[in-house]
C-alpha cells in the first residue's frame, strides 16, 4: 500500500470517528441542557419531566416487572403487523402485476384508501374486533399495507424493458419472468417498502394501543396522560425513539446484505 493510499484510508477513518464524536456530544449536551433547565425551574418538570426522572421511571417499571413486558408487547405487535403487511403487500402487488386489468379497476380505490386517515376507522375496528391485540394489528395493517402494495407494485412495473424483451425472446414462461426477473429486480424497491413499512407499522401500533390496549408503550403513554404522570409519557416517547432507530438500522443491515452487488 502506498503512503498516499494509507493517508486516504486514515482520513476516511478519522472522518467517521469525528461524526460519531459529534453525535455523542449532541446527545449528551441535549440531556444535560434538559436536566439543567428543569432543575433551574426554567421549564416545568411536571410537563417536560427530566432525564433523571425518566431513568427513575424506568427503574420503577423494571422493579414492578412491567418495563420489558411493555416493550415486548409493542415489539410483538410491530413484528406481526409488519410481517403481515409486507407479505400481503407483496402477494397483492404480484397479483396486480399479473392481472393488469384488475390493477386498472382497483386503482382509484387504492388511492382513496391510501389517502384516508385510517385513525377514522378506529371506532369501527374496536367494535368489530374487540378491545384486544387483533384491533391493534388490524389498525397497523390498514396503515402499512396500502403503502407496501403501491411501493412494491411500482417496483415490479419498473422492470427493465430490454431485459423483459430478452426473457420473452428466450421463451420464458410468466412464472420464470416473475421469479427470475421481476422479483429480483425489485429487491431495491422491496427493501425501500420495508423502510416505509416499519415507520408506518409503528404509527399504526401506537395508534392502536392508544385506542384499546392494556399493555405496551402506547398504553404507557396514554396511562401517563390519564394519571397526569408525564414521566411515563416521556419515557414512552424516548423508548419509541430508540426502538424505531434500532428497527430501521436492522433493515439497513439487511439491505446491505441483500443488495451487495447492485
Amino acid at each position: 500500500m502506498s503512503l498516499d493510499q494509507k493517508k486516504y484510508l486514515h482520513k476516511l477513518h478519522m472522518n467517521k470517528i469525528k461524526v460519531i464524536i459529534c453525535q455523542i456530544f449532541l446527545i449528551v449536551s441535549f440531556l444535560f441542557l434538559w436536566e439543567y433547565l428543569v432543575n433551574k425551574g426554567i421549564i416545568s418538570s411536571f410537563i417536560y419531566s427530566s432525564p433523571s426522572r425518566v431513568i427513575k421511571t424506568i427503574k420503577e417499571l423494571i422493579e414492578s416487572h412491567n418495563f420489558f413486558n411493555h416493550i415486548y408487547i409493542t415489539l410483538k405487535e410491530v413484528f406481526i403487523s409488519f410481517t403481515l403487511g409486507i407479505s400481503l403487500g407483496f402477494i397483492i402487488a404480484l397479483i396486480l402485476y399479473e392481472f393488469k386489468f384488475l390493477a386498472k379497476v382497483i386503482d382509484p380505490f387504492l388511492t382513496m384508501l391510501n389517502s384516508l386517515p385510517k385513525v377514522a376507522l378506529g371506532p369501527l375496528i374496536i367494535i368489530a374486533c374487540g378491545a384486544n391485540i387483533k384491533s391493534i394489528i388490524l389498525m397497523a395493517l390498514l396503515i402499512n399495507l396500502i403503502v407496501s402494495i403501491i411501493t412494491i407494485y411500482n417496483g415490479f412495473l419498473g422492470t427493465d424493458e430490454y431485459i423483459l424483451k430478452l426473457f420473452k425472446t428466450l421463451g420464458a414462461s410468466r412464472f420464470q419472468i416473475l421469479t427470475k426477473l421481476v422479483i429480483p429486480s425489485s429487491y431495491q424497491t422491496i427493501i425501500a417498502s420495508f423502510k416505509l413499512g416499519i415507520a408506518q407499522t409503528l404509527i399504526g401500533v401506537i395508534m392502536g394501543e392508544f385506542l384499546v390496549s392494556k399493555e405496551g408503550i402506547g398504553y404507557l403513554i396514554v396511562y401517563g396522560k390519564q394519571v397526569f404522570n408525564l414521566n411515563y409519557v416521556m419515557t414512552g416517547i424516548i423508548l419509541l425513539g430508540i426502538i424505531s432507530y434500532i428497527l430501521y438500522k436492522l433493515i439497513i443491515i439487511l439491505e446491505n446484505k441483500l443488495l451487495k452487488h447492485l
Partner: peptide, 28 residues
C-alpha cells in the same frame, strides 16, 4: 432455433457474468 441480441446488453446486475451467460440455457 432463433436467438435475438438487443442493443442493450440486458445483463442482470444481481447475477455473476457466468450466471448471466447461462441464463438463456437455464430458461430453456
Amino acid at each position: 432455433k432463433i436467438a435475438y441480441m438487443l442493443q442493450s446488453d440486458a445483463l442482470l446486475p444481481w447475477l455473476t457474468i457466468y450466471e448471466n451467460a447461462i441464463l438463456g440455457l437455464k430458461i430453456k
